[in-house]
Nucleic acid binder design. Structure first.
Lengths: 159, 159
DNA sequence: TTGACGCCCATGAATTCCCATGATATCCGT
DNA sequence: ACGGATATCATGGGAATTCATGGGCGTCAA
């Protein structure tokens, strides 16, 4: 399975291009589509990112009547496809961030990729810093360390 | 299943490289990804380590809507992937400790691997010494020896 | 013509690969 | 059981490659 970790700050050049971390590209190299998918995150100066395979799975879920029981939720989920952008790699492993994408996240000349497991996020660097601080405060307020949970080992999806 | 035991002090060279104990590598040799995963331990000059398989299980748990019921907890767990580092072995079974990793644990030219069962920790050697002393004090204060417990043998997941 | 976009190349820096070395541990034959 | 040969392992350094980044040029459309 695809696994995204770590934080990678990158530059956006004057053409709106940005490199995708080599590690992420390696993870995505098994995908049929050479590129990434970006979807705006509501309420944050960030975008969710992943490979084409996950986008396909999300689309399949829309067609499955058992997954979205709430009609409004289904509608919202469908709308995410309208806001999604499929961005192909150029020959050097870069993508071009469309204007509306940069506008949503307030990205001008810098951005940071942040791994979150099976997906990643692309952030405005300052906004990410603020987000991290907020999370830290919450964590220390609760005064407990984060306890990671393991998925049950039943059926393991094959990579 | 993967089993990490013992304590292994190692050197960090000027390139930031450190060998992974041969014993650990043997344990990890069945993994799909040749390398280890390190995640900072909050409040200690140490990092938690394990193989890629465990990271996949952790990531799967994030995607499973039934596992993390609390939204804040989910967010904290996702953030751990941002702090996680996937470090591949070089041809000689070494990894490169990134600057942030060394900074978190206060590691410069020495570090010590400490087995903890299904995971291990990578410590600043002095901090590990202090940690051990603290544990000993606690134990003698309570005047009790360590009692190991066994999991019920019902369903044993195969490694 | 003016951009926007895709494709190609250049470059410096960081990273990875490859080989060397000495020490330790393991194997093997007598 | 002993000793020598062999293999494994931790560690160091230099060379080769990868990577992020910037720029140029041709094409196509407005």
């Amino acid at each position: 399975m695809a696994l995204f970790t770590s934080e990678y700050p990158f530059k956006v050049d004057r053409k709106g291009r940005i490199s995708v971390p080599a590690d992420f590209r390696t993870v995505l190299s098994q995908e049929s589509y050479p590129g990434i998918v970006l979807i705006p995150v509501r309420g944050e100066l960030a975008l969710d990112g992943f490979g084409n395979g996950r986008l396909e799975s999300l689309a399949e879920a829309l067609d499955d009547p058992e997954i979205y029981d709430d009609e409004d939720e289904l509608e919202q989920a469908q709308q995410l496809f309208a806001e999604a952008r499929r961005l192909p790699f150029d020959g050097d492993g870069r993508i071009v961030l469309p204007e509306e994408v940069r506008a949503h996240a307030g990205i001008t000349d810098k951005a940071i990729y942040v791994g979150r497991g099976s997906t990643f996020r692309l952030w405005n660097p300052d906004a990410y810093g603020a987000y991290k601080s907020k999370l830290n405060e919450k964590a220390t307020a609760k005064g407990q360390s984060i306890r990671l949970r393991l998925a049950p080992k039943k059926k393991r999806a094959e990579g």
